[in-house]
Design a protein around this nucleic acid. Structure first.
Length: 914
RNA sequence: GCGAAAGUGGCGGAACUGGUAGACGCACUGGACUUAGGAUCCAGCGGAUCGCUCCGUGGGGGUUCGAGUCCCCCCUUUCGCACCA
């Protein structure tokens, strides 16, 4: 007894000396230490203390690291709980995994591969538990797949270019590179601390020249293939970020990163022709329906926004023509006016020299001064002005007025529309406001034969449904859908005044950023040759990091002659290097193709490696990238596939979008000030307990509410399983294979059934990534097993139970390993030091152990639970029915009424209808 | 406005194809071990009567021997889209 107290005294130097006057008792394998109550606290904080008892005479000394226990300091006094020493144990295995490169993999076509990827992080500082969820889910999958025998590629890297580094540099009077690198170091440490099983040899950072060389190379290929081009156009400008943004990066009229209102500004810049892939990107989604969440597919479909219709040309009375796009050529006879966007090239021209000119000009000027919110926002009302000119309806020859309207968008279709107020809500509202005639040309199916021309007067809403064409010349009487549309288009094509046309909402991707911390665009502008791309041999164009970063945040590239002065690669004359940098989304659009051969110098990636590893089998990340990153990455991959670089058109076979971590009703984030620091959790509860809680608290797709009490529970479970396994150790060494259930006493057969049923449940749960129920199943199993063997695993010693116990312990540790790898590995190493847990195969349930010889049958009367009966498993349906009917509770419940009908669900229930 | 998902104890959440609602965990209550207990162990824990029983999965209808689960209507919340012709 005495050694325990002295061990404690020695181990905790900061406990006051009198504290060590402790009473220690050992009962079974549990050490209980009592301390005098006068020492209410020796440290005001509610954190834990660790006590290492590692005496040679200790019953716990066999395991090497010994048993350690934490003593919660907030207890006034305390018996030490049976805590496990997660600090020492987690560090030990973490170090071993790193030293041995346990999770490093190589291309091996003889083995089945599994590529698991979490969206790589932006190195913004330290990780908090909100970040961790993504990586914990990924790690659980990776570790499980390894146990299933797969060759698992599980890499990590850093999305390391971007604005926040520049902002931080200004604030700290530092340099974006310095800030980024130190964040990467910090976060790498934290990933290792949490025991995420990455192949660190494949780490990439997008700001490394060895990486962005290939980002530039991809841009060069796009330039060669005509998918990268330069144009001047109105682009989204974020004043607070001091840069332009792509359409995808504008959310509700505001910058996706800083939430500042975005304004349109005419600027010249580089664009990528993502629209050329619109159809492919849309079609590709059909192949992802099994593996991607439906709502992500829907969001991408909506974003691409395909519309099928026709292009129709209208002749302007007095010269000129206007082309419109419509999805409803069947309503052409109902077009009673045309409307142009105020920015339309003809807008002012039409009114030139006639009496409407001044009014039209005023309208155009007014609209030019409005931002997107005023123009197309929720409260924007329909506004317009008559140009004074008319166009001729190409089918019925009628003259219709040409208007300018605020609701017509210049950058969709041709920036002009034909307006059919009877069958389009927007046109209807506009027509009513400006007293433009409304003409019905589609009659609702089954509607009475009315005078449809007169009917328009009393319309209160546009009718946008389908029906029969009326007032439509030779087309009248047809169904509009299908044949009607088809016939009209044929007629337009025959007369050469229109044609079939598909339009997309998707726009080309503007990638020029007027910032410093990004990949340089490999182009030199030459006064003679125009923009010329830098030859491949000269890549990468290095982003200079040795130039001072100015305090005003302006990109030093624009003002650094050493950077921008360059000879034209084509003519050798003096040129100017492109000083804008690339959108960082370009860097993250292909990184998953780099991991398979992360250090490849000769190419973006080695083809054999790509053939073997891609596509990513399971991608894990946040829903916020449903469009942004996931659309760009698909685009890049398809482009690279089209030029023979990547092996598959689609990059991600399956996608899991995890929910956010919320605390106090808000998403956990630094700006909200509700973060739970990772280091703190690791120090207080350990990496395993933190991981366990994250996976246990909610299914992955749903939001997770952080709970300080919840992680205490996770920690308790770690403690209980640790106590149980350590207590059982002496029974496990050399335990034989368990006997078949038939040869075991009922209680032990039940334990084996519990073991194998748990294997079944966890298998199913892992398959659906329902880690919360998988954990619950193992918790249940531990409850059942401790119920039989005792919390210390010592009960029933010397019986044939050792083998059953050994099977149960091995199973629990294996099933839990993907979630809490450190503790399970450590405990297993005490049972079988020669074979590490991570090399064990994933368990398979033995059907023999799942069978039962007795079944519990629920008996209902009129659907209400009335009794439960236990019957032999092989009892016939008829006999089960009889047993149920003769059950005393059922007899009473029936009260002599004869059963009208009896339903028997084999193995489950009997329902008696009376 | 349109579309999608979701509403289950005090809380997080289970219930796979309709078949014992509330697994597992948290919180709470009682007990044990104790000088002490915010540790540990045991027990209880949807509501009402607290014996049998009745009512309970947002509300209302329906289908069925049987509905948290399927169908219809409504309410609430979250997310996405919102002049894209």
């Amino acid at each position: 007894m005495a050694y325990a107290a002295s061990a404690i005294r020695g181990a905790i130097s900061d406990i006051p000396a009198e504290m060590a006057i402790a009473i220690a008792t050992i009962r079974q394998n549990l050490l209980t230490v009592r301390l005098p109550s006068v020492h209410a606290r020796w440290d005001g904080k509610a954190c834990a203390k660790t006590v290492n008892i590692d005496s040679p005479s200790s019953p716990y000394s066999g395991g090497g690291s010994g048993i350690m226990r934490t003593l919660p300091t907030h207890q006034p006094t305390g018996t030490m709980a049976e805590y496990y020493d997660f600090r020492t144990l987690e560090e030990r295995w973490r170090n071993q995994w790193e030293a041995d490169k346990t999770f490093a993999v190589s291309t091996d076509p003889t083995r089945e591969k599994y590529y698991l990827l979490e969206m790589f992080p932006y190195p913004s500082g330290k990780l908090h538990v909100g970040h961790l969820r993504n990586y914990t889910i990924g790690d659980a999958i990776a570790r499980m797949k390894r146990m299933e025998g797969k060759n698992v590629l599980h890499p990590i890297g850093w999305d390391a270019f971007g604005m926040p580094a520049e902002n931080a540099a200004i604030q700290r009077k530092s340099h974006p590179a310095t800030w980024t690198m130190s964040n990467i170091d910090e976060m790498r440490r934290q990933f290792k601390l949490m025991g995420i099983s990455y192949d660190w040899d494949r780490e990439v950072a997008t700001c490394h020249p060895g990486y962005y060389r290939w980002t530039q190379w991809i841009f060069a290929r796009m330039l060669d293939e005509g998918y990268a081009y330069r144009k001047s156009s109105p682009v989204n400008w974020c004043e607070s970020c001091g840069t332009t943004l792509a359409n995808e990066q504008v959310v509700d009229g505001a910058c996706w990163r800083c939430d500042n209102t975005v304004v349109l500004q005419e600027r010249e810049g580089w664009f990528l022709k993502i629209t050329a892939f619109a159809e492919e990107l849309l079609d590709g989604l059909d192949g992802l329906t099994d593996g991607w969440p439906e709502r992500v597919l829907t969001m991408q479909r909506n974003w691409i926004g395909k519309s099928v219709g026709a292009e129709v040309t209208f002749q302007v009375e007095g010269g000129g023509e206007i082309t419109v796009f419509t999805t409803r050529p069947d309503t052409l006879y109902g077009a009673t006016f045309m409307a142009l966007a105020p920015e339309h090239p003809l807008a002012l021209k039409l009114a030139e020299g006639i009496e409407t000119e001044r009014e039209v000009k005023a309208f155009i000027d007014e609209m030019a001064g409005q931002d997107a919110e005023q123009r197309t926002g929720e409260k924007a009302e329909k506004r317009g002005v008559f140009t004074g000119r008319f166009a001729r309806n190409p089918l019925n020859g009628e003259l219709i007025p040409i208007w300018l309207a605020n609701f017509v968008l210049i950058d969709y279709g041709s920036g002009a529309i034909m307006s059919v107020p009877a069958h389009d809500e927007r046109d209807f509202a506009f027509a009513r406001q400006y007293d433009i005639p409304i003409r019905i040309v589609i009659a609702p199916e089954g509607g009475d034969d009315k005078d449809w021309l007169a009917e328009a007067e009393s319309m209160t809403d546009a009718f946008s449904g389908d029906g029969i064409m009326v007032n439509s010349g030779p087309f009248s009487g047809q169904e509009n859908r299908g044949m009607g549309i088809e016939r009209v288009v044929e007629e337009l094509e025959r007369r050469n005044i229109g044609k079939r046309q598909v339009n997309y909402r998707l726009r080309d991707w503007g990638i020029s950023r007027q910032r410093y911390w990004g990949s340089p665009i490999p182009v030199i502008h030459c006064p003679a040759c125009g923009p010329v791309r830098v030859p491949d041999a000269d890549l990468p164009v290095i982003l200079p990091t040795d130039i001072p970063f100015p305090e005003d945040g302006k990109s030093p590239l624009h003002t650094d002659p050493a950077f921008y002065e360059a000879a034209c690669p084509a003519c050798g004359g003096p040129g100017r290097r492109e000083t804008d940098t690339m959108d960082t989304f370009m860097c993250s659009s292909w990184y998953f193709n780099r991991y398979p051969s992360a250090r490849c110098e000769a190419a973006l990636a080695d083809k054999a490696d790509l053939d073997y590893w891609t596509p990513v089998d399971q991608y894990v990340g946040g829903i916020e990238h449903a469009i942004l990153h996931l659309l760009y990455a698909r685009f890049f991959n398809r482009f690279l596939h089209s030029i023979g670089v990547t092996s598959r058109p689609e990059p991600f076979a399956r996608l899991l979008t995890q929910g956010m971590v919320v605390k106090d009703g808000a998403k956990m984030s630094k700006s909200k000030g509700n973060v739970v620091p990772l280091d703190e959790m690791a120090a207080k509860y350990g990496a395993d307990a933190t991981r366990l809680f994250i996976l246990f608290a909610a299914p992955p797709e749903r939001d997770l509410e952080w709970s300080d009490a919840g992680i205490e529970g996770a920690s308790r479970f770690m403690n209980r399983i640790s106590r149980f396994v350590i207590g059982s150790l002496n029974r496990l060494k050399g335990a034989a294979a368990p006997a078949t259930p038939a040869d075991l006493p009922k209680e032990l057969a039940d334990i084996r059934r519990l073991t194998h049923r748990t294997i079944e449940r966890v298998r199913g749960d892992f398959g659906r990534f329902q880690f919360n129920t998988a954990v619950a199943a193992v918790m249940e199993m531990l409850n059942g097993v401790t119920g039989h063997f005792g919390a210390d695993g010592g009960q029933g010693e010397g019986t044939g139970g050792d083998a059953v116990l050994a099977e149960a312990v091995g199973t629990m540790l294996t099933l839990l390993y993907p979630i809490t790898p450190h503790l399970t590995t450590d405990l297993w190493s005490r049972i079988a030091p020669e074979a590490p847990l991570w090399d064990r195969p994933w368990p398979v349930a033995d059907p023999l152990c799942l069978t039962r010889d007795e079944l519990l049958i629920v008996v209902q009367v009129n659907g209400k639970l009335r009794s439960r009966i236990t019957v032999p498993a092989d009892m016939s349906e008829e006999a089960v029915k009889e047993t149920a009917l003769n059950d005393p509770k059922i007899v009473e419940s029936l009260g002599g009424k004869p059963p009208r009908k009896v339903i028997v669900v084999p193995g489950k229930l009997v329902n008696i209808v009376a």
